[in-house]
Write a protein that binds this DNA or RNA. Structure first.
Lengths: 218, 218
DNA sequence: CATTATTCGATATCATTATATCGATATGAT
DNA sequence: ATCATATCGATATAATGATATCGAATAATG
């Protein structure tokens, strides 16, 4: 007799990226009092295929969908939030308190995504010592030491590209496990460290390519 | 007799995303006076395979690489910049002058990527009428009209998620061809309009998934 | 001037991701 | 109760993207 547990359904990288979109929409539906939702209706909203939606859901959901009706909105929300780690909060530090750094510090929404920026760093002695959006800013020399002592798993890099690799090395020296990199450079890191690049130049590349209409689809 | 022109080599979406990284590195090399570069050396730097680098290069380059030596740095830079449209400048408007909007307006680096933000919009009557980083801010009601009159191809959305679809519709009504969306929502648009999402929640999802070590590679 | 080592380009294979097909099951209508 | 229909899950196929293989080219070396 076969056992059907969730572990068979693997969650691909692409699927993970779609989760926040599903989640946002499901929460909106829940807010409107909708309790059951079908894969085809979700697919219609996002312009996905219903098969893809069904697969994505089955990869994260602990319960099955019901033929002819669909999935329970609340359960989907709960399951996705669990999978994405929104129920536990990860602490992060941010390095580089320029315009972008300040914007990220001021964006309180991250806590909904399980991320809390607890400390920031900046090279400028003026900025270091100040407090931005309730977060203390320290001098960059203290990165490694503080990260290690506070056992911080995530580092956010919002420094100019020339400083990015140095900062990255300091974060890793401080024991950080994952790096969210907003500098438009490639960072060299050891195997076990994840670098998540938020490279706007890359997005822009797709944009302008589209405007030239020579692109090959996605 | 077969003709070998560049048109055979198609440029995939993923390859386009890699271009800004190559470009950044190639420019650094050029700054150091390096004139020739090989695929294996580039691959080593990025932790890519040399085959991938070679394929990417051959998809954009007008000239061929030379066995035993490599590619001409200058030519690669020129070809990539052309492909990515950095030589011509696209005008854009930005809607939503909050923290993030201000950060983007202040970031002058976009002009290197062929993007120039010429006008901004905001709902708040205080903000509208002001000037941020040299860019005039107008009231949101004027979006469609101004975009159409100035023939703007790109709209940047940095408003809260509740307002994003409305703004999106206004931009499209104004004739915008591509949208760079920083709001964490799916936008519904006609077929011919490109939406490039810059969803930090999606990146965060991958980050925290990695921290749980349950992820399935990339 | 022949030999060797390195890189190139083209074609082939493999991996990942997305879509299509189809039988099974639940809901609502007759 | 039976039938029609919408949706489900599972398996199969297709598309996209990454990697491996291999002969050809060229620069450096003896």
């Amino acid at each position: 007799m076969e056992e059907h547990n969730r572990e068979n359904h693997i969650l691909s990288t692409q699927a993970i990226k779609r989760m926040p979109y599903y989640l946002q929409y499901l929460k909106k539906l829940a807010g409107e009092g909708i309790e059951i939702v079908s894969a085809p209706s979700i697919a219609a909203h996002f312009n996905f295929t219903e098969i893809q939606v069904r697969k994505d859901f089955s990869a994260v959901s602990t319960t099955k969908g019901k033929p002819k009706s669909g999935f329970t909105v609340k359960e989907l929300i709960y399951d996705m939030e669990s999978i994405l780690g929104y129920h536990s909060v990860n602490q992060a530090v941010l390095v580089g308190v320029g315009q972008l750094g300040r914007a990220l510090l001021s964006y309180r929404g991250f806590e909904n995504y399980g991320l809390k920026i607890v400390v920031a760093f900046d090279q400028d002695p003026e900025t270091a010592g100040s407090k931005i959006a309730g977060v203390n800013v320290f001098a960059s020399e203290k990165i490694s030491d503080l990260c290690r002592r506070m056992n911080i798993p995530i580092g956010i890099i919002t420094v100019p590209e020339t400083a990015a690799q140095t900062v990255c090395d300091q974060l890793i020296a401080g024991g950080v496990k994952a790096i969210w990199n907003f500098a438009p450079v490639h960072l060299s890191v050891p195997q076990n460290i994840l670098v998540q690049n938020e490279n706007m130049a890359a997005s822009l590349a797709l944009l302008s390519k589209h405007l030239e209409e020579k692109i090959v689809s996605e």
